[in-house]
Design a protein around this nucleic acid. Structure first.
Lengths: 281, 281
DNA sequence: CGAGGCCTTGAACGAAATCAAAGTCAGTGG
DNA sequence: CCACTGACTTTGATTTCGTTCAAGGCCTCG
């Protein structure tokens, strides 16, 4: 089910994260794997936490685990025992209600933490599914809290990361509660652009890994509305759409599009933009 | 501004939470205050955490602070240094975007924790306003983490409470993203009923402390929609509305009302209910 | 080639927002 | 005591944004 591997030979703790991208082949069927263990410093780097000297010589290692597209990292109700950090790949977290309806909560990627919602009830409250082949670092929760007592910085980092997640959800609530469909899609594009930028990829041209349906679920919209809105942004030149590839042409316009002025003035405004565009052709 | 008091005389740690409700008058202008200090056990009780024997003899005390209706507990961007636990009273937490638009995130009451969103950036990310006179317990964050290293149960409790907050927000996102106006209002009433029940008040008859506008902001609806929906529930007998007093008559009906069937069948269904009601009169 | 996802686009509908007006209530001051 | 004010609420009429329904196009993969 999971393509886990548990070699007896530990990788030297000094191996840096950058080396993680360097793929190595194993004898077993020419499968390719990234390195299978990370030390505390690597974890801190991924989380954007200033790693401290005392952590350098830490012997503790955290295991990596790989998931193929479509595989589940954890399922709803599964006993909680570990957090995960995304080292590479793209995923989605899904909330499933009592009727089986799915609501997408986030699209985690490199540096994001998974599983925090499992701490309070000792069961994961959501499902995490890989949208591409992924490499995650497993952080056994017990091990982590124990380490946190030794390295105060780590403990504070854990509180900080959990707090950050909470703020992220708060902003999401604000978005769903107050913004129009166009504003939501615009913000989604801006946040994806920023995330790709932070990861070192182009923030101007990137590949959304999820379907329109998944974007819609995430934004509280239907897939048709998402599609239409992307088409509109494409028409007025703010973005270039080709299937799941998105080119950002006017980031400021996307950022500036907030709550739309009460109503009818907006349609006019967009129409004006379109008129201007057409007169130029 | 704040009706804080810092007496030199500490209340004995053995004083129980139940005594907190016993108001005492001070010489200063006949103002009435609840007790001004709580110990670790009291805090654990409030958070529904099994308090452990080792905490009983803990000398550490946490200060209380009172807020009058309308006062702010903390404001957006204010430097973070403490969490708060609500001992009594009702509040609202408000997210304020760059344009000054307000979005209500929660209505904290007895046992709820405030300020978690300040940890990650060392600045509070939201505002908390008292909807009634309140009594809060101040938990200086440094002190708390230090104590957490001694009492492992406390540390785990802190993680658990933060995780619980995250799950709460996730459920909120699911609600805003997928439910109709009627379902949102119904769920809001159910959750308020449960909260009042947990606090020892009646879960069948309670006083909403917030305006229709605030409820609407919380649920991502307009105040008119909230008002209309409450009127509808009142008409079909599920609740009794008198201003901000709400009587719950059919909790199951409110709980069962989920995503409404695609559309037109619903209006018919509600109409049927109304018809049935009218034929009974 | 054909089947099955996925995406786009159009037309019609409907849920909730907006606009508007009247009603209720608490507090204030004559 | 009552009229007045201002905040909050209810209710109705109208508008509109986003959904729903429907049809056709596109791409991948067997």
């Amino acid at each position: 089910m999971l393509s886990m591997q548990m070699p007896e030979t530990h990788v030297a703790p000094s191996v840096s994260i950058s080396a993680a991208l360097q793929l190595v082949s194993t004898e077993a069927g020419r499968q390719r794997h990234s390195k299978l263990w990370s030390n505390l410093r690597d974890v801190c780097d991924l989380l954007h936490i200033p790693s401290v000297a005392s952590m350098m010589d830490e012997a503790f290692l955290f295991q990596h685990v790989q998931f193929k597209t479509g595989q589940r990292v954890h399922t709803l109700g599964q006993p909680f025992d570990a957090l995960y950090i995304v080292n590479s790949g793209f995923l989605k977290t899904v909330l499933i209600d009592e009727l089986g309806n799915e609501q997408i909560l986030s699209f985690p990627m490199r540096g994001d933490m998974l599983g925090v919602d499992g701490i309070c009830t000792k069961q994961y409250a959501s499902e995490v599914v890989a949208l591409s082949d992924c490499d995650l670092i497993v952080l056994p929760f017990k091990k982590l809290t124990t380490l946190g007592r030794v390295h105060i910085e780590l403990e504070q980092a854990m509180y900080a990361v959990m707090s950050r997640e909470l703020v992220r959800e708060q902003v999401m609530v604000g978005m769903l509660g107050a913004l129009s469909a166009e504003a939501r899609v615009a913000r989604f594009l801006v946040s994806m652009s920023e995330k790709f930028g932070q990861m070192g990829y182009s923030s101007k041209l990137f590949n959304l890994r999820m379907t329109r349906h998944e974007i819609g679920s995430y934004l509280g919209l239907t897939l048709e509305t998402v599609s239409r809105t992307l088409s509109t942004f494409n028409q007025i030149g703010w973005i270039s759409v080709d299937q799941r590839m998105i080119g950002i042409n006017d980031l400021d316009a996307l950022k500036t599009l907030r709550r739309l002025p009460p109503s009818r003035s907006r349609t006019k405004k967009l129409q004006v933009v379109l008129d201007v565009m057409s007169t130029c052709m």
